[in-house]
Amino acid sequence: MSTPEETARADQPADATDITSRKAGEIQLDTAVRYVFAACGVLTVLVTAGIIYVLIDGAQVFFASDIVDVQGFLTGNTWKPTSKTGDGTYKFGILPLVSGTLIIVVTSAVIALPTGLGAAIYLSEYASPRTRAIFKPTLEILAGVPTIVYGFFALFFITPFLDNFFQIRTFNALSAGIVVGIMIIPMVSSISEDAISAVPNSLREAAYGLGSTKFETTTRVVVPSALSGIISSYVLALSRAIGETMAVTVAAGQSAKMPFYPNVEQNLLQSIETITAAMINVASADIGGNTPAYDSMFALGLALFGMTFVMNLVAEYIAGRYREEY
């Protein structure tokens, strides 16, 4: 089966003699190659710089207009960028969008965190190699399904299904939250599984040696040891849920509202608008205009970038700590 590899290996000795004979001239090439590769690495920094520049540049134009200032943007409780409220003005308050985003994050967390952890434990501790070989790629496919497909799945399948049990709106946070949860299960499960597999076998054996059952070993030794890895997977997955766009645009609605209280269940059954969905809404309205609505997209992007940035840093920090443990 592996003929090309074999031939490649067979070729190597011949090449190696070549190398020694040409070595002297290679040093300059070496340096050049190093710089080219380093430039590739630097490009990633440029991308970040570009993102921050674009967001701040746009946001600064937005805040420079006298419609809203930073404080008003961060504390306003009405989001109406393209339709006027009763007093004849447009309103740019991010809080309803943050509320919508948080509702999605919480719903998806309820679905994905336990499920993902359970799957990770099963795959690393219980599953036979054969089962694992089937389940693992299948779960990974879940992460690869285009998010717009999840949106239609929620709208045309999950919402009608839920409608049998609840008084639910066509657009609602619940079904959008459920599909976002399904979408991030593989993220939780695969990173957590890596962390759980990284727990040294000696710990398990020590626990068994003390008379622990498999259940006790898993829940009291293995999972706590892998905790930082698991938490880091949680944070990353939730950060993805915050940034999820098309599924919530299609399924959760486009109506920004502040959370319902005390009828908290309404938060799930009613439509909401997330930060990302609001950006898509504005984009499909005013992509090139010089209107505040267009500029608000960048302020939203900046807020979104800030939220995910902090969460990613936290995840990185936690994961870094756990790596040092073994």
Binding site: G41, V42, T44, V45, V47, T48, G50, I51, V54, L55, G58, L236, S239, R240, I242, G243, E244, T245, T276, M279, I280, A283, M297, F298, G301, L304, F305, T308, F309, M311, N312, L313, A315, E316
Partner: peptide, 19 residues
């Protein structure tokens, strides 16, 4: 740079759209 790459991997796609 390494931390930055990990962060970029988590930036929402809609933000890349703005870029």
């Amino acid at each position: 740079i390494q931390v930055n790459i990990a962060n970029l991997a988590g930036v929402p796609s809609v933000v890349y759209g703005l870029l």
